[in-house]
Computed example of a mutant assay.
Amino acid sequence: MRQIVLDTETTGLNPRSGDRIIEIGCVELIDRRLTGNNFHHYINPERDSEEGALAVHGLTTEFLSDKPKFAEIVDEFRDYISGAEVVIHNAPFDVGFLDAELKRVEMPLFKDHVGGILDTLQQAKELHPGKRNSLDALCDRYGVSNAHRTLHGALLDAELLAEVYLAMTRGQNSLSMDLGGQDADSDGIALEVVAIADILLQPATAEELAEHELLMQSLDKEVKGQCLWRAAVN
């Protein structure tokens, strides 16, 4: 499965008022593994960034003045994303800008070039309702180091999001003894996220299943009905 983790930086917040994309950063995942086949371009937006946006990304008009325009990189970008599932944090924002840029060069909407769009912000809200789910907050929650992130950058943020996405969707943690490196819980046990593909699944033996059934019957008897475990799996 081919996935592209994508981020953009822009001159402001609203493509409908003329704000433009100034940077696109993408990293490629194949079968949930980073390939190193990245896509990254700074783009001349032919306008200044708003003051608030400039404070976020630090990409000045002077720096961007000799960079290619979107029309000059769009074919390379389209070929790179073609058919992939694209992973974006707060997808409506980036897709809105990409659609506006594609419309300017008379090309189909972003969704028509890709195999699907996955919004990690929506996914995080479902996993962690009521909590902060910004990229920085998710980096903290999943132990992804963003200490080198002083300003926003599309490629850097795409790399961080790829790590967060992989951690957020693995679904299982392994425990390892704390050797003073990674963050640990109050018992000194460090949480290490591992890929499901790396976990050896050992089916229960007939004897173990029989013992389990006896335990379930005992629990059913204690609650005078069906225990919570049976209700959950049924």
Rank of each mutant, 00 (worst) to 15 (best):
Glu159Leu: 09
Ala53Thr: 10
Ala167Val: 07
Gly58Asp: 03
Glu211Ile: 03
Asp7Lys: 01
Gly153Thr: 07
Arg104Glu: 00
Val87Tyr: 01
Glu207Tyr: 08
Asp31Met: 05
Asn38Glu: 06
Ile199Ser: 01
Ala154Gln: 03
Glu106Tyr: 15
Asp79Cys: 15
Glu192Gln: 11
Asn44Arg: 12
Ala184Phe: 05
Gly181Arg: 14
Ser134Asn: 12
Ala137Glu: 00
Phe63Tyr: 14
Ile22Phe: 04
Gly96Pro: 06
Asp136Phe: 00
Val164Ser: 06
Met168Gly: 08
Leu201Ala: 08
Arg47His: 12
Asp31Tyr: 03
Leu209Lys: 08
Leu175Thr: 12
Tyr142Asn: 09
Ile73Gly: 01
Val194Glu: 06
Glu213Tyr: 11
Gly116Asp: 02
Glu72Arg: 00
His40Gly: 05
Asp19Lys: 09
Ser82Val: 01
Gly188Ala: 13
Pro45Thr: 12
Gly52Cys: 04
Ala231Gly: 07
Arg104Lys: 01
Pro92Gly: 10
Ala184Tyr: 07
Cys26Tyr: 01
Asp7Met: 03
Leu127Trp: 02
Pro45Cys: 12
Phe110Val: 14
Gln202Lys: 15
Ala167Arg: 14
Arg16Thr: 14
Leu166Gly: 03
Glu211Pro: 05
Glu126Gln: 13
Gly52Ser: 02
Ile43Lys: 03
Leu214Pro: 11
Leu219Ile: 05
Pro108Met: 14
Glu76Phe: 11
Gly115Phe: 02
Asp75Thr: 10
Asp185Phe: 07
Thr205Glu: 02
Asp94Val: 06
Gln217Thr: 00
Thr11Val: 02
Asp31Asn: 02
Lys111Ala: 04
Ala190Asp: 09
Ile117Thr: 00
Asp19Tyr: 06
Glu192Phe: 07
Glu46Thr: 13
Asn90Lys: 08
Arg149Glu: 04
Ser186Met: 15
Asp31Glu: 07
Val5Ala: 07
Leu109Ser: 13
Ser186Asn: 14
Glu208Leu: 02
Val164Trp: 01
Ser134Val: 04
Gln172Asp: 14
Gly181Leu: 09
His40Arg: 14
Arg170Trp: 15
Val233His: 05
Lys131Pro: 05
Leu109His: 00
Asp187Ala: 12
Thr60Tyr: 12
Glu9Leu: 00
Gly143Pro: 01
Asn44Tyr: 07
Ala195Ile: 10
Thr150Phe: 08
Glu85Tyr: 13
Glu51Thr: 12
Gln123Phe: 04
Ser218Glu: 12
Leu160His: 10
Ser82Tyr: 04
Pro45Asn: 11
Gly171Leu: 15
Thr60Lys: 14
Ala147Phe: 08
Ser49Ala: 05
Gln202Ala: 12
Gly171Pro: 06
Ile196Val: 13
Ser218Asn: 14
Ile73Glu: 02
Thr150Pro: 01
Thr61Asp: 11
Ile22His: 03
Leu219Gln: 09
Leu161Val: 13
Ala204Met: 10
Cys26Gly: 08
Pro108Thr: 15
Ala204Glu: 05
Val86Ala: 11
Pro45His: 10
